[in-house]
Design a protein around this nucleic acid. Structure first.
Length: 851
RNA sequence: GCCGAAGUGGCGGAACAGGCAGACGCGACGGUCUCAAACACCGUUGAGGGCAACCUCGUGCGGGUUCAAAUCCCGCCUUCGGCACCA
């Protein structure tokens, strides 16, 4: 476009229009749901709330702006859309800032929230700000405490000992605060110790089986698989071994083991206890004590990663004691090894080296016997090859038979499983059992910046919950870190010293605060009534609005947050607080935008891409559209601004087509002329067809969150319009319809430019101004999409040889005759014998098979 | 090591449900307009061959099924994400 022509219309300048529309939408209350309005279908759209780190980067835009497009798309379908935002405001970074720089965590947090609110507004996203939730506010965390008390009453909260990483100077350390292979404190460098503390747990394991059931919710398969594996249900049996009497001890102690293969019980040739097992000390013979104690001490210092490494050679020590196998009375040695974990099953195993790889490696390393008890049917008669086996036989074939198993020889493995469990049960030496990998949720944190756990410790009454009417237990406003990482609440006499609600005697407050995952396990309920003072949530609104229709957020929360949220919902349903047993009906996990270096974006890595400069240069609409166009939304990928100019050019062309349909491009010799052989009528028909076909495709793509192809299809429609610019088609009814559809389809994704062009369009027609975001989503005119002819590719032996344009409704026989007459086809067929003609995909393609 | 996801032009990516590989965009090259530019416009652009019409090859590698494979099956390799030696 030349300068003279360009000057006929305004340039597309996002900076001049975007802030204006953002203000207008705020005035209109576009983002605010009418929660009590029941005349329209509800749509609760939730996007994971953010930690207010203070640096809003393109990653936040990547997560939030497509979600905003979803919200706007649903509003255009007449739905009452609830699309709230909030801040996950408790947590470690605020505390680190306080320790390191002396800023109060609250000040740091609220300052960041202010910055993020401003940046979030620049996205042009129509959030429901009236429903905003900030979790560090007492009006929110009060209800964490309320919920905790309900859990406590229901037996879902309890106190137990748990091991933490401990620094003598800085107290409990989070995993990220333990650094280096030598495991030193991030702040003071002291070697990290282990310490057992009494802490609070929530009994998520009570819901293990229900959490395995995903029926009724539409969640991605990989997430369901990950949660299923995390819960890790194993069906097997518990078998009770007893310790054998010897010169040191009388024997008879029970050693319970969990096994998924009770059918291999006759193959148990030794036992292994976790180093932490309660009976280790008692079973260790005096002469073996120094070695065992050294081994246990070493295992304690190891990181879980080291201990769980498969690469490492197996280690272990013999205790000196023996155990008796409950099925055959055999005496087998008891070993202690770190490959058995205290936290899983019973912390002890029966080792069946012939049929378990880990046990096999251990047996070979320490020269322990190997006995085959399971064999494929055809090898069942062979002598025991245990001593010479090169690897464990871990087949779970239905055809395997038991061998070397006394009365059970010859039984099929599945039958033997049942028979052996039955015998154990009958003799009181075991039973069928289920084990889970899932452990109860440790919610105690030894930190200031979190929700105080509302209990006191009374000398007389013990653990006493703070009464509901005395909530919230507030964090003290002044906090003295004294430059250390240790929980300052412990030293805060004004906080700690209190009276017992029951006896009024002296008592000490709990100084542990809650894991921030508690905050995020129910925040979507609070969004519905954030200011409610007589309860955590409004039951009527919860009944009407929950479950959440669509939840979107990063896949990094696949297990913990999403599993805890499901647990909370089920527990709250059982407590009568909510109605539904699943929080999120449909889930979509986006990928992550990484830094240009391919690493996760973070301030410390210095690879954060600030959207502000891109917005200043291209406008929010271009940035939004570019992030959608980058690739499939669930994939993410390294950030690169390459190509953003192309998206900007697209919006520019839309702008030009809409405002100057009759202009011509000086750079194009064909400008203003229809393509050869095309009449105004056929061009108009083609344009209508393209517009409605695009509408059909784009509608589906919005619903399936396939934003990258959605943008591509809008580009195609825009290109079609642009091509006809300056011709007699421009300004025709067909042109006008295509332009209208393009703007409506663009509105959810690029809301400002669509709104601006819509306003000008209405003004040009002398119509009253109204927001495009209040318009109805258009309907496809199926008749316009139907085409008179279509092109059929013709293959010979699967190779493309020709294309033929035929009437849309042509019969197969006619098509075949036509195809066989084509010169190119005949050339390809020459010298071959025709075998058959395949009409594939309902006549979409013809393949001629020859010999 | 196990589990999950994925490997397609120079790049991001597209391809409904086995049916025309490379949509859309970037970059590059050539051109238009311009004193000069680009946040403007037009054209070309998978590789190789041919004056051309066209031909051959081509979706990580090796096999297979099929009239037809990026897509399904078997065996490998690589990358990313997650992690539990779970008995």
């Amino acid at each position: 476009m030349t300068i003279s022509e360009r000057s006929r219309i305004d340039r597309y300048e996002p900076a001049a229009i975007e802030p204006r529309w953002q203000e207008r939408w705020a005035e209109l209350g576009l983002g605010e749901a009418e929660l009590r309005d029941e005349s329209r279908p509800k749509y609760y759209l939730l996007t994971m709330y953010d930690y207010p780190s203070g640096d809003l980067h393109v990653g936040h835009w990547y997560v939030k702006t497509p979600t905003d497009a979803i919200a706007r798309f649903h509003r255009m379908h007449g739905e009452n859309v609830f699309f709230p935002v909030g801040f996950d405001a408790f947590g470690l970074p605020a505390e680190n800032a306080a320790i390191g720089r002396g800023v109060h965590p609250a000040e740091w947090t609220y300052r960041n929230i202010d910055t993020m609110r401003r940046q979030l507004r620049s996205m042009g996203a129509a959030f429901d700000w009236d429903s905003e939730v900030v979790t560090c506010d007492p009006s929110y965390y009060r209800w964490n405490q309320w919920l905790f008390l309900r859990f406590l009453e229901a037996g879902l909260a309890y106190r137990a000992s748990a091991t933490v990483d401990w620094c003598p100077n800085d107290g409990t350390l989070a995993r990220e605060q333990v650094e280096g292979a030598d495991r030193h404190c991030w702040r003071c460098g002291a070697p990290v110790e282990k310490r057992d503390l009494d802490q609070w747990f929530l009994r998520i394991t009570r819901y293990a089986d229900e959490l395995l059931d995903f029926s009724g919710i539409d969640w991605p398969e990989p997430i369901r698989v990950m949660q299923t594996n995390w819960i890790g249900r194993s069906d097997g049996a518990e078998a009770v071994f007893t310790t054998a009497a010897d010169e040191v001890q009388p024997g008879g102690d029970e050693l319970r083991v969990f096994t998924t293969r009770p059918d291999t019980l006759f193959g148990a040739t030794f036992m292994v206890l976790a180093p932490e097992h309660a009976l280790v000390e008692r079973l260790t013979h005096p002469e073996r004590r120094p070695e065992v104690e050294a081994y246990v001490a070493r295992a304690e210092r190891e990181t879980e990663i080291e201990r769980l490494s498969l690469e490492r050679e197996k280690t272990g020590v013999f205790s000196g004691s023996y155990a008796v196998n409950p099925v055959n009375g055999e005496r087998i040695p008891i070993w202690i090894a770190d490959y058995v974990l205290a936290g899983y099953g019973t912390g002890a195993i029966m080792a069946v080296p012939a049929h378990d790889e880990r046990d096999f490696a251990f047996a070979r390393r320490f020269g322990l016997p190997v006995r085959r008890v399971i064999a494929p049917r055809e090898l069942a008669g062979e002598p025991d090859d245990g001593p010479t086996m090169a690897q464990a036989y871990v087949s779970k074939s239905q055809d395997d038979l038991l061998v070397n198993s006394g009365p059970f020889d010859g039984l099929g493995a599945p039958a033997a499983f049942a028979a052996i469990v039955e015998r154990l049960s009958a003799e009181g030496r075991g039973r069928a059992a289920v084990s889970y990998r899932l452990r109860d949720w440790l919610i105690s944190r030894q930190r200031y910046w979190g929700t105080p756990i509302p209990v006191v410790y009374c000398e007389r009454d013990g653990i006493v919950p703070v009464p509901y009417d005395r909530l919230p237990v507030r964090l003290p406003e002044t906090v003295d870190y004294a430059g250390r990482g240790e929980n300052p609440l412990r030293r805060d006499a004004g906080f700690v010293e209190t009276t017992c609600p029951r006896c009024d005697g002296p008592a000490r407050r709990e100084t542990d605060t809650m894991d921030t995952f508690v905050d995020s396990s129910w925040y979507w309920y609070r969004y519905l009534s954030p200011g409610k003072t007589d309860g955590p949530l409004d039951r009527d609104l919860e009944l009407r609005w929950c479950p959440v229709d669509q939840y979107t957020g990063g896949a990094e929360h696949a297990v913990m947050h999403l599993l805890y949220s499901r647990f909370f919902t089920k527990a709250l349903a059982d407590l009568g607080v909510v109605h539904e047993r699943e929080p999120f009906r449909r889930l979509f996990n986006q990928g992550q935008v990484l830094g240009a270096d391919g690493e996760r974006m973070s301030k410390s890595r210095g690879n954060v891409q600030d959207p502000d400069e891109l917005v200043a240069r291209y406008g929010a609409d271009t940035v939004r559209l570019f992030l959608m166009f980058m690739g499939p939304w669930d994939q993410g990928g390294p950030w690169s601004p390459t190509g953003i100019g192309g998206v900007h050019r697209f919006l520019n062309r839309v702008w030009t087509s809409m405002l100057d349909p009759h202009g011509v491009e000086a750079g194009d010799p064909e400008a203003g002329r229809l393509p050869a052989g095309e009449s105004a009528e056929s061009a108009a028909r083609a344009l209508r067809s393209t517009a409605h076909r695009t509408l059909r495709t784009v509608t589906a793509e919005y619903l399936e969150f396939r934003f990258n192809t959605m943008v591509a299809h809008l580009m195609e429609l825009s290109n079609a319009l642009f091509r006809y610019r300056g011709t007699e088609v421009a300004g025709s009814a067909a042109w006008d319809e295509a332009a209208r559809l393009l703007l409506l389809m663009l509105a959810p994704a690029a809301p400002h430019v669509a709104e601006e062009l819509w306003a000008r369009r209405l003004a040009a027609r002398g119509e009253a101004g109204r927001s495009i975001h209040g318009e109805s989503w258009p309907a496809v005119d199926e008749a316009a999409v139907v085409e008179a002819t279509r092109e059929v590719p013709v293959q010979v032996n699967g190779k493309l040889r020709d294309r033929v344009v035929v009437p849309a409704g042509i019969a197969e026989a006619d098509l075949e005759r036509l195809v066989l007459e084509r010169a190119k086809v005949r050339a390809a067929l020459a010298g071959h014998q025709l075998v058959r003609v395949v009409h594939a995909g309902g006549g979409r393609l013809v393949n001629i098979v020859v010999r």
